[in-house]
């Protein structure tokens, strides 16, 4: 059987929308028919369970890694249909041994998920585990500090031979913002999509629901779904194939139209 496709959602700069994207992207992939697991490996400020309003829980990612638990024992099944391994809110940041981490990630790689989406804290906390990912997405906002930081992150991924792409978030199309082309030139990696700033996001966090589910056709939701579609088309075949169908069924014209609208 095919192994899961593992995507690291990352940024060098904090607060650019990693968790927001990771949650909504996972749900969007799920809606395309894939089996998705979302891992909250932000050891500083885990937020996935708050964003999704998950019930209190007794096995967290760190416990699972330390206690060498199985992936199955550690997941929370959510109403959205995705599985989540939540991160533990604690004052002290845990230190994990590379051996425990490796062992756990090996187990994860042997599950039957189509996609493993990993939310992370800013930066690269455990450079050694980069080898477990098929790809890293770098979330940026269209401003200098965020993009300059992204350049450094691209370099680190390139050194680790990890495929990487950029997603622009919170675009407001202001004159002082960097454009998609500016960013693509600066970071010299592909920009997969541009997600607009949307009031729906803070509202969805407040409501503790995924934005893509709260308002399916909002500007934010469409932009995230377009990126999920991209994965359905490019790597979806690795999984059970339902995704390709669902993606194509809904895609086609609408996708093309959205692409045109997006370019304005």
């Amino acid at each position: 059987m095919a192994t899961p496709y593992s995507i690291r959602i990352s940024s060098q700069k904090g607060g650019v929308g990693k968790t927001t994207f990771a949650v909504n992207f996972s749900v969007a992939l799920r809606e395309l028919g894939y089996k998705v697991i979302l891992i909250d490996s932000d050891f500083v400020n885990p937020a996935v369970s708050t964003y999704l309003g998950l019930d209190p829980h007794d096995i967290w990612l760190v416990d699972s890694i330390h206690g060498r638990k199985s992936v199955n024992e550690s997941v929370v099944h959510t109403a959205n249909g995705i599985d989540v391994v939540p991160g533990k809110l604690s004052v002290n940041v845990p230190r994990l041994s590379n051996r425990d981490l490796d062992a756990w990630l090996e187990k994860l790689k042997r599950t039957d998920y189509d996609f493993i989406v990993t939310d992370t804290q800013p930066g690269i906390a455990y450079a050694d585990v980069l080898k477990f990912y098929n790809e890293a997405l770098i979330i940026v906002t269209p401003d200098n500090p965020s993009c300059i930081n992204a350049i450094r992150m691209v370099n680190r991924y390139d050194k680790a031979h990890l495929k990487n792409s950029v997603v622009v978030n919170m675009a407001r199309h202001r004159p002082y913002e960097l454009s998609k082309d500016d960013i693509e030139d600066a970071v010299s990696t592909r920009v997969l999509g541009v997600i607009p700033e949307d009031e729906l996001v803070p509202l969805s966090i407040y409501e503790q629901r995924a934005a893509v589910e709260l308002k399916r056709n909002g500007r934010f939701s469409s932009a995230v779904r377009r990126i999920a579609n991209h994965y359905a088309v490019t790597v979806g075949g690795r999984g059970r194939g339902i995704g390709i169908q669902a993606g194509d069924g809904r895609g086609g014209k609408i996708n093309a139209l959205m692409r045109i609208l997006h370019l304005r």
Binding site: T19, N45, A47, T50, Y51, L89, V91, P202, I205, Y206
Partner: peptide, 15 residues
């Protein structure tokens, strides 16, 4: 003024 940042701020205060 949102839940995650505020929760995080309490952690920072404890630190």
């Amino acid at each position: 003024p949102d839940t995650t940042a505020s929760t995080a701020a309490i952690k920072t205060a404890m630190m």
